[in-house]
Design a protein around this nucleic acid. Structure first.
Lengths: 199, 199
DNA sequence: AAACCGATTGACTGGTCAGTCAACCAGGGA
DNA sequence: TCCCTGGTTGACTGACCAGTCAATCGGTTT
C-alpha cells in the first residue's frame, strides 16, 4: 500500500529548487528549470506543490524553524548572555558554511525580499528578532549589558550585522575562507557584546 | 528653441515611480501604473527612459551618489573616527526620515535585492562599504579602534546594522517615531564604536 | 487477468505586460 | 499662413510562463 518513491521525488524537487534558486534567483527561475534540474517532468512539480511559491515557502519554513529552535536552545542552555549570542551567531554562520546555497536562497529570496516573501513570512522572521531581543533584555536585567540601549534595537543591529556578513560572502564582497567564518563569529560577538557592556 | 516642459515631465515620472515602487514593489509595478500615477501617457515613460529598469536605476544612482558624497565628506571633515561614523549613520537615518518612500525603494529594490538590481549596482554599493572600512582602518591606525577586528568586517557590520534598522522601520517591525530615529543614531555609534574600542 | 489507483508525463492555454510605433498636437520660425 | 520639430498619446503585438489536464505508466489487489 505505502510506497517508497513519493518522498524521494518530493525531496529531489526541493533540492533541485535550492540549486536553481541559488543560481538564477527565484524570480527568473521557471518551473521547468526546477523540473529539469530534478530530472523530473514539469507536471510533477505541481503534483507535490500547489505552486512555485509553495516550493520556496517549504524551503524557508524547513530551515527557519531550525534557526528558531537553535535560538531557543541557545537561550535555554547558554550560560552568559554573551555565550547565548555567540551560539546564535555561530549557528547562522555554520548554517551558511554547511549549505551556502540554501542560505543564499533563504536570505536573498525571503529574509531580504521584504516585498514578496519576506512579507508573507514576517511573523516567523520577527520571532527570531524577538528571541534575540529577549536574550539581550535578560542580559540587561542581569546587569551584564547596559540598559540605555533598547533591546529591540540591539537585536536588530546584531541580526543585521550577521546577515550583512552572509550577504558579503554570498556575493563575494568579502573573503569566505574557513578562517573568515571563525573570525566572523568572534567578531560579531566581540564587537556587539563589548559595545553592549555597561560603561 | 529650448522649452521648459521636458525636465518637468521626466521628474514627474521619477517621483511617481518612487511612490508606486514604494507602494507595490518594483516587480509588481506595471509601467502603466507609473504613467497613471504621473498623470502621463504610457508611451511617454519610454520617451524619457529606455526601460522600466532604467527608471529604477536612475532613482538609485541619484540617491546613492549623495550617500557616497556624504560619506566622503564625513571622512574629510569629521574630527574623530567616531564622529565620522556618527555622521554616516546620521546621514542615512536622516535620509530615511526625510524621504522614507525613496529610501524604501533603494533598500528593498536595490541594496537588498542582491539578485536583480543589487547585482548590477554592486560596484557602487561596495564603494560605500569601502569608504566606511577606510574610516575604521584609519581609526585603527590612530589607535582609537582595536586592531584585532578586520576593518572590512566592521564596516559590513556597521552598515548591516543600519540597514536592518531601516528595514525594521520600513516594515513596521520596530517603532518609527522621531525619538526613535535619534535614539537609533546614538545607539548605532555607541554600540559599534564602544565595541570597537581597544581593550 | 482485469480492474484499480496513485505517480508521472508534457502539450497546451489563458493571461499578463514590456516595449513599439504610427498618429497627433502645439508652438516657433520662415 | 504653413511647415517643421519634438513632445505626447495609447492601441497593439510578441514573448513569456504559471498552472491545467487528459493521457500513460507501473505496481497491487482481487
Amino acid at each position: 500500500m505505502a510506497k517508497a518513491p513519493p518522498i524521494d521525488k518530493r525531496r529531489q524537487i526541493l533540492d533541485a529548487a535550492i540549486r536553481v534558486f541559488a543560481r538564477q534567483g527565484f524570480h527568473s527561475t521557471r518551473v521547468s528549470d526546477i523540473a529539469d534540474e530534478a530530472g523530473v517532468a514539469y507536471g510533477l512539480v505541481y503534483h507535490y506543490f500547489k505552486s512555485k511559491d509553495e516550493v520556496l515557502n517549504e524551503l524557508f519554513i524547513e530551515r527557519w524553524s531550525l534557526l528558531l529552535t537553535a535560538i531557543d536552545e541557545a537561550d535555554r542552555e547558554g550560560a552568559s548572555p554573551r555565550a547565548k549570542l555567540e551560539a546564535v551567531a555561530g549557528f547562522i554562520v555554520d548554517s551558511y558554511r554547511h549549505d551556502p546555497e540554501l542560505m543564499k536562497v533563504i536570505i536573498v529570496e525571503v529574509t531580504r525580499a521584504a516585498n514578496s516573501f519576506g512579507r508573507t513570512h514576517l511573523p516567523e522572521i520577527r520571532r527570531a528578532y524577538d528571541s534575540i531581543a529577549k536574550i539581550v533584555a535578560d542580559g540587561q536585567a542581569a546587569g551584564v549589558f547596559r540598559r540605555d540601549v533598547d533591546a529591540t534595537f540591539a537585536s536588530m543591529s546584531f541580526y543585521g550585522a550577521i546577515e550583512q556578513l552572509l550577504s558579503g560572502w554570498i556575493f563575494a564582497v568579502i573573503p569566505a575562507a574557513d578562517s573568515d567564518f571563525d573570525q566572523a563569529k568572534t567578531l560579531l560577538v566581540t564587537t556587539i557584546c563589548d559595545g553592549l557592556e555597561p560603561r
